[in-house]
Amino acid sequence: MTGPRQLDGSRRLEDFLAFSAEATAFTVFELRGTGQSQAYLNTCDGIVGTEVTDCLLDRYDAARSAVVASESTLPELLRRDILSDPQLGPVARNIAKMWFVGVWYELPRAWTEAFGAREGNATFVVSTQSYTEGLLWPAIGANPPGAKAPGFGSWAHPPRIPVFP
């Protein structure tokens, strides 16, 4: 469950995207479409370290395998095994927030007190594109203000909100 995974970079990114799809309710296709996948994985690795990221991805893999023989649903297992975990929970929430807002949020003090301060663990915008690529905007059927101009007068139309499974 713990320790560095011996995975090549692309496989690791696939796993990160699979977990992210679960955590955001967007598809892997849509996540890739933001062009931010690698930047978000790098950010997570850079702040909490690859070991913690790998631990989270392993835990997700394990939950996916376990759900077949379990009476619990995958969301239930994830809530129990990842979101309720004192170390992995805040990291998982940060990943979801990063996808939606394009910002890495400083981890809570309880986390750093328990698991050690991390260099660079401040609230920051991940990349020059991450604000405009935030999932927040498609989720509410709007364009990011100041970017991805939708055309004069388009605001007269109702928002186009995607259907979530």
């Binding site: 296709f29 479409g33 933001t34 062009g35 991805k148 101009a149 055309g151 007068g153 388009s154």
Partner: peptide, 17 residues
């Protein structure tokens, strides 16, 4: 014009995949 920009957004998502 609105359709044109929706097409642009759709293109960008396809190209990143």
């Amino acid at each position: 014009v609105h359709t044109m920009f929706r097409l642009r957004d759709a293109m960008l998502v396809l190209l990143a995949n």
